[in-house]
């Protein structure tokens, strides 16, 4: 009897905590979506379940800005960054774990410096450098720059992943007469998928969210990314909170959908790799 009571209390308590966490995490997003849909002046009356609704905010944004173009750019750049990150980080992490070249760890640590310098002050020298090599104002320039910032954490994640990888797996492939490259390609790559997926999500989100680098490195209107585009809309003085929230929703929804689907693999990938000590 007492035991059941305890179980019930525990369940209620946990249930309340869940509701609390969900409210805390999701209410701002709920309010974003709702505000984007509210008509005219009703926007300024803070009601929890508001009406009347209207698509005006969306219509204004879509008809008066290049939001579809920003979408294409953001997707291309985020996908490019993701692919490049995985392509660079995976072999790098593998080499770091399996080779014993001197100065390896120093290199990885040095990369952490990327996070130690204010981004805006880095962006300007990067821009100047990119102009010198003729790569400025291109999607590629953003892909390269974003990849620099995904690199340290990506290497850390994959490194954790490989170091838990029993060497016997490759060894058996070597015994079968494979070269290391073949062994990597045939045996290791398929097994790294969960880790790669983690890096994918991480890199995609970083690139998709960036504002500072697109602001400095991109000049053409037709190459702007979503966050930069949204910031420009904010600055068009008659843009209202309704349009801003509609634009924010349009930026977030695809990602939220993707994340709802991918988060479990993301966590699984992390737990198989980086955090396993």
């Amino acid at each position: 009897m007492r035991k059941t009571n305890w179980v019930v209390i525990r369940r209620v308590f946990l249930g309340l905590l869940f509701v609390g966490v969900i409210l805390y995490s999701l209410f701002p997003m709920y309010w974003m979506v709702i505000s984007g849909l509210r008509a005219g002046r009703s926007l300024f009356e803070p009601l929890l379940l508001p009406g009347p609704y209207s698509w005006q905010g969306y219509k204004t944004i879509l008809s008066l800005t290049d939001f579809p173009t920003y979408y294409v750019n953001s997707i291309l750049i985020a996908v490019g960054t993701t692919v490049l990150t995985v392509a660079v980080v995976t072999p790098m992490a593998y080499a770091l774990v399996r080779s014993r070249l001197p100065g390896m760890m120093l290199m990885v640590r040095a990369m952490l410096f990327a996070y130690m310098f204010p981004a805006l002050l880095l962006a300007i020298p990067i821009y100047i450098f990119l102009v010198k090599i003729g790569l400025d104002d291109t999607r590629l320039s953003l892909i390269l720059t974003h990849s620099t910032f995904t690199l340290p954490l990506g290497v850390w994640l994959m490194w954790g992943f490989f170091k838990n990888f029993p060497f016997e797996v490759e060894e058996s492939a070597f015994i079968d007469g494979c070269s290391r490259l073949q062994a990597i390609y045939r045996v290791i790559m398929p097994l790294t998928l969960p880790g790669v997926l983690t890096v994918v999500l991480f890199a995609f989100v970083l690139s998709w969210s960036d504002f500072v680098f697109s602001l400095i490195l991109i000049t053409s209107d037709e190459l702007k990314t979503l966050p930069y585009g949204l910031a420009s809309i904010d600055d068009a003085y008659d843009a209202n909170w309704g349009e801003l929230m509609a634009g924010s929703t349009m930026i977030c929804l695809p990602l939220l959908a993707l994340f709802a689907f991918l988060s479990r693999y993301f966590i699984r990938g992390l737990s198989m790799g980086a955090v396993k000590s």
Binding site: I124, Y127, I128, V131, K132, D136, D137, L215, I216, T219
Partner: peptide, 10 residues
Amino acid sequence: KVTTAIKAGK
């Protein structure tokens, strides 16, 4: 933006 563009030679 304007000063960065000048500094970068564009």
